[in-house]
Nucleic acid binder design. Structure first.
Lengths: 196, 196
DNA sequence: GTTAGCATGTAAGGAGTTACATGATTTT
DNA sequence: AAAATCATGTAACTCCTTACATGCTAAC
């Protein structure tokens, strides 16, 4: 369960929970949100929508009032879609903290409990930490013979992942601190989302 | 020319230029180098090697000396492979500054002229800058209604790309400064690769 | 009235993953 | 001698992109 391709499905369900939308609009938002590089094509979005339609996760909105201006097909989530969304968001495990999947889950974190959020954040963090350790270990064996640019790329990569880990740590702390106090504005670290 | 799948080919050619290697070893190094997330499977590496073999870009190394310890197939680049590598590395254009491709090109920057390096670095930078502008423009329209986590994700994303842009700028400056002076150790910014 | 952008789709094909299958070598 | 891990491969399948195809609507 939770194959790779469920990513789009999850994202679509999440977005539609913020309001009905048509495909073209969905694509734009999707590209913006998972969009640091990848661009989702119509060729993957529309078939995915059709599939979700068949699975009764979403349905077409019947245009209220004026019947003009049709050609856009507006979708909204069904009851079943909401349930599926909740189920997917509650999943903890490898599928939840892989690059793309993590971003999307994070994007819709408001729809989950703090318990789930913490587990996903921590899972993601140890995943990155793991990679970091592995790379740095193997780095020592190769680095000696490494060329200038190769070394710089490694250095930069490690630094980026370290930043990512710090970011996650801040988020984890922020989540934990919400429990007791009513969030003291966290003035030292504007990095993490406060309870505003 | 320069389709998406040439990524592996370029990486393999580059690595083999640093010495003959067998598939298993190649995979390990490949995963380490483009490996912040993706893991290359045997199912893609071996067929790719076969294809390159057919294209005369690489060839099997005949084991010198002792004939024992065989089962690994060691590859090395051919003359034709070297030419192809040079050709791919000299390409400037969109293909050169897409995420994965950029990393690999950068990794083997030592094999190109400063002129090419500068064009690739600058191309990459304006690519990122573009994305940044586009996202920040659209951010103003959505941000108002944005949820807490969505906003934090955006903020973090923008910050990361901005860091990337600064990194590239440092590298570009470093490249330019090598021209005149014999590199004054660049003590203020340990970010960029010095001339060692 | 014509260009540009909105909007939806389909068909073909590529690239890479998963799972399967096999066997050698090294370590315990 | 068993277990781990090195080492190579293949077949089926999935996901996605590219390219094509179409028509509406708004702006100039």
């Amino acid at each position: 369960m939770a194959r790779r391709g469920d990513t789009i499905e999850l994202a679509v369900l999440g977005l539609l929970h913020e309001g009905p939308m048509h495909g073209y609009e969905l694509r734009k938002r999707l590209n913006l949100m998972l969009g640091w590089g990848r661009v989702l094509s119509y060729g993957s979005l529309y078939p995915a929508l059709k599939k979700m339609l068949r699975g009764n996760l979403i349905e077409e909105v019947v245009p209220t009032g004026q019947q003009s201006r049709r050609q856009r097909i507006v979708y909204k989530v069904t009851q079943q879609g909401t349930e599926e969304f909740q189920r997917l968001m509650s999943e903890v495990g490898p599928a939840a903290w892989e690059d793309d999947n993590f971003d999307i889950r994070f994007r819709f974190f408001s729809s989950t409990d703090m318990e789930i959020r913490l587990r996903v954040l921590e899972g993601r963090r140890s995943r990155l930490q793991e990679r970091l350790d592995r790379v740095q270990r193997e780095l020592k064996m190769t680095q000696a013979e490494a060329d200038r640019y190769a070394a710089e790329l490694q250095r930069h990569g490690v630094e980026s992942v370290e930043r990512e880990v710090r970011w996650l740590s801040d988020l984890i702390n922020a989540e934990r601190n919400v429990q007791g106090q009513p969030a003291p504005e966290t003035p030292t670290s504007p990095t993490s989302p406060t309870t505003s």
